[in-house]
């Protein structure tokens, strides 16, 4: 409340950025079977967590505002939105999915970056940028489970991805995360378990760009 009063007095406005998980144009509900074409038939998702970092705003292609200390963990079980106080008019928002390499090599952090958040590997250093777990009948694993812990900050296994989306100052920013392209059949069948920096993790992260869009 106090924060809001201060930001209003500076002429800033508080924008909420929220993320809505979708599959094939349908809102998905945690742990419930979801019908979709092909691979997505009876897919169920139990965990969805990812980092949104380095948020910045553009106006006519020029960077007008950058959030400081910008690290937000989106977690289906906890929160899927956060607030940013922006002073300027903007028509585009940019952010990264994942944690930059400088942060990855700089020791222990708190808040959303605390290693207790389940997004830090223990057997080797580095953040998991994007975690999705669930089941699909096409996975030939125990209980048909798939687990993708997508991370890696060192070349050639870099997995951080930048996203840039057109938006407007007038509304809060609602981002649709459509997992359709990510949960492709071949990946689920051939690589149901991705849990270290690898070629496959890089491939999966390259699909993030197609997953994020502004809600109509």
């Amino acid at each position: 409340m106090i924060l809001q009063v201060i930001s209003v007095s500076l002429g800033a406005q508080v924008k909420t950025i929220s993320f809505l998980p979708y599959l094939e144009n349908e809102r998905i509900i945690k742990d419930s079977s979801q019908y979709a074409e092909n691979a997505h038939e009876n897919i169920s998702i139990s965990t969805l967590k990812f980092y949104v970092s380095k948020i910045y705003f553009y106006k006519s292609g020029k960077k007008v505002f950058e959030e400081t200390n910008s690290f937000h963990l989106m977690d289906w079980d906890e929160k899927m939105s956060f607030h940013v106080s922006v002073k300027n008019e903007f028509d585009e928002v940019g952010f990264s999915i994942g944690i930059d390499s400088a942060t990855n090599v700089s020791g222990a952090f708190g808040g959303d970056l605390d290693p207790t958040k389940g997004m830090y590997w223990t057997w080797q250093s580095g953040y998991i940028n994007f975690k999705i777990e669930g089941t699909s009948p096409i996975c030939k694993t125990r209980n048909h489970a798939f687990q993708w812990h997508i991370g890696g900050y060192k070349y050639p296994n870099t997995t951080i991805q930048e996203i840039k989306l057109r938006c407007t100052t007038k509304k809060d920013i609602v981002v649709v995360v459509d997992l359709k392209e990510l949960l492709e059949q071949s990946s689920l069948v051939e690589h149901p378990e991705v849990m270290s920096p690898s070629k496959q993790a890089v491939h999966l992260s390259s699909i993030f760009k197609t997953c994020f869009s502004i809600a109509p």
Binding site: V105, G107, A108, P115, Y120, T122, W123, S125, G126
Partner: peptide, 25 residues
Amino acid sequence: GAINHLDVQALAPISHPKEMGENIN
């Protein structure tokens, strides 16, 4: 060289199933 910083080193033995077998949470 699996660990890149002293701060996060302890996570490895704490979590390793043949060392301390704990988890940080």
